[in-house]
Design a protein around this nucleic acid. Structure first.
Ligand code: FES
Ligand code: FES
Lengths: 152, 152
DNA sequence: TGAAATCCCGACAGAAATGGTCGTATACTG
DNA sequence: CAGTATACGACCATTTCTGTCGGGATTTCA
């Protein structure tokens, strides 16, 4: 039904949180989980995934934890979702290597692939920094306006 | 993981099929299901949903079946998905009347709502006619290029 | 009028995805 | 070494999705 999984949601929240605390060198999974009241162990696994995909850098031991691997501007929502939920395709049949048996008959896959690309483009154009900056306490909400093109 | 349900997929296929057969007055659920090799009873239920939501018109009895309620140009992919899967929100918590308990802490909901609107806009800009016309046997593939704006 | 075709609809069972927990191993700090 | 924290795999509970069944209502047609 076209919605983010909770894991992806948690992941985005966590990254945003990290982006908002650049002063600290690293934050533990537990700290972040507590900040939002989400299951610590689950978040831990999510952060591990993000680490494995190069979005975060981890450090074990005391005062260890996670930190963004790059500038918040360089991490897109797309990457986060992709890292957590794997490649997504709007069509139920993945179109990848092994398409579903209906492939020949299903004539809807191709045009929807374009839609898929468009959505991916939207997600790619959003960075963690965008999310973090969204609600400036007083700072002028300088809205960014992007144009995404859909070629059908 | 941001993908259409099979039901929505089936629904789009069926509508496309109906759009491609305007000469016939109506096609039965079984005919359409057989054309694509999808479970007839399941498709029947989907078509019933679409009928209830005003996208199709049904007619019982011999030579009965379903037909588009409007011109294929006037039926958007968004409507189809919405009719079948209900309202979708990219955020896991529906943001509607009763948000989830995390609402105060989850600061990511708002910006993602914009993304949600953008995606909805993309889907709204695609009509069944667009899908049906996609693969013209020889007809020049006149590509439509749309711009969707995302204000963050 | 009766049979056949077809839509209508609610209930339900099986399958799959998702959310979340646990236990243990490993790495770092001091 | 003791404590803190990540890494990772196994596992279960819950929800969502897919598909089936059965009975009922409408329309057509002979
Ligand atoms: S349903 Fe498999 S190719 Fe579209
Ligand atoms: S997780 Fe519920 S408001 Fe975002």
């Amino acid at each position: 039904m076209l919605k983010l999984t909770k894991k992806a949601d948690y992941g985005l929240m966590a990254l945003k949180y990290l982006a908002e605390h650049p002063e600290t060198t690293a934050l533990s999974a537990k700290e972040v989980a507590d900040a939002y009241g989400i299951p610590a162990q689950l978040l831990a696994k999510i952060l591990q995934l993000l680490t494995k995909n190069g979005l975060l850098r981890s450090h074990a031991g005391m005062n260890g934890g996670y930190a963004l691997a790059r500038d918040a501007r360089e991490i897109s929502a797309y990457e986060v979702i992709h890292a957590i939920d794997g490649p997504f395709f709007i069509t139920s049949c993945t179109k990848g290597a092994k398409s579903c048996e209906l492939t020949p008959s299903c004539t809807i896959k191709e045009p929807l692939a374009r839609v898929n690309d468009t959505i991916a483009g939207v997600l790619k154009s959003i960075s963690i920094h965008d999310l973090a900056e969204f609600e400036q306490p007083v700072g002028r909400a300088r809205e960014a306006n992007r144009l995404v093109s859909l070629t059908l």
